[in-house]
Nucleic acid binder design. Structure first.
Lengths: 213, 213
DNA sequence: CGGATGGTTGAGGCCGCTCAATATGCGTGG
DNA sequence: CCACGCATATTGAGCGGCCTCAACCATCCG
């Protein structure tokens, strides 16, 4: 979800004794698990969160990565249908689910933010279904990098807080395919891979966009 | 989206000079196109609607099929990000987008219905991302048939209003793979395929559920 | 009956997966 | 500062599931 100016209102509110409370998570710590009762929903303050679903044999599909400003953890029912972990050390603001329920009826800003967040989550889900259903490995990785660079807004250098395994489980690939695709893009001069492997530098954004379809 | 008792309130309302107006579409007629201005959102009264996105080279990904009771066509922005066509002859109720905007602020039932519809759409999107990212062709077809039978609620015999091409573009497969998988399931005694090919009879629901992961 | 449309079946190829080995980065302790 | 160990990433070889391309079949209509 891009930090596109819709969320700061909420972020601001929570700095002034609003309804949200801060919580902190270490890397790989669980925020909530599939099956938990959904008491809160969250906004990322710093760090990154992954939400995912599992098949009984362990196959994992990461629905999305949530970066600062993003709202996650909204549920239709009482129970968590996804799990959520911190990717790196992460701070979030927790809102009570009942706040949402109470506020959808009033004219408050939070209600509008939440509705907007839902609609944007739906749009991202649609984009991701197109990616998973109809794009090649190279196109998937290119889309992923473009999306990250758009959301991070840090220009050429993109931080990759998540592991190759996380990326693979997001893009519907294996870690080997992710790795191979990245090195291929590097050989083609589209990106550069720093030694520490947890970042990507975009060298040819136009080429990436061309791959995105 | 299952017709799970949340929508009839809206459907009822529109029978009594509510905000909705009826519109009728022939099979394969366009309800709206990608890029259109999003003036309305819709609820299916009868028939079926597909919403989809296209890549520039023509590859299509169908986000979902919308059956009677389902709400579709909600957008975060001004523009349509998906196209929508009638699958068969279809009747819908159209609501003005401004109604939603006006109503999200009041305590009205429509606002709650719309929020509930968004959350359910999000859940279905999550299920579908898991399917597209991590399931085999056989698992995809099994999930699809189970989902349809659950939503149609007609027990053993499931109507398939959509073509093999539509199913393929929904499941991220080709028509050949869909066809082969259906015949394979038939050979295994899990389903039966009537001669007219636009329905499926479930013979072994447990086997289908086992395949669903 | 004949043509059109949609669905099924077959043969072969390719992309991404599996299994396995190697490399690299990083933290820890000598 | 280097040696070592561990976790993570990369690279390679071979395989297989789904795709591609093509022929065949069924159903529906005129």
């Amino acid at each position: 979800m891009p930090n596109d100016g819709l969320v700061p209102a909420v972020r601001h509110r929570q700095g002034e004794a609003g309804p949200g409370s801060r919580r902190r998570f270490a890397a790989d710590e669980e925020v909530y698990a599939e099956g938990d009762r959904a008491v809160h929903f969250y906004m990322v303050v710093s760090g990154a969160v992954r939400t995912y679903r599992l098949l009984s044999d362990g196959r994992r599909q990461i629905d999305g990565f949530h970066l600062p400003g993003d709202i996650f953890g909204l549920e239709a029912g009482e129970e968590r249908r996804t799990g959520a972990d911190a990717v790196t050390d992460t701070t979030v603001t927790a809102f009570r689910r009942s706040d949402r329920d109470a506020l959808t009826g009033d004219a408050g800003a939070l209600a509008r933010e939440v509705v907007a967040a839902m609609l944007r989550a739906l749009e991202r889900a649609q984009d991701h279904m197109l990616l998973l259903g109809r794009k090649s490995a190279k196109e998937r990785v290119a889309s992923f990098l473009l999306g990250l660079s758009r959301r991070a807004g840090t220009g050429g250098a993109i931080a990759l807080p998540m592991s190759r395994t996380d990326i693979a489980d997001h893009l519907g690939l294996t870690i080997e395919s992710v790795s191979r695709t990245l090195t291929q893009l590097e050989r083609e001069g589209v990106i550069a891979l720093p030694a520490h492997r947890r970042a990507v530098e975009v060298r040819d954004g136009a080429a990436l966009r061309r791959l995105d379809g």
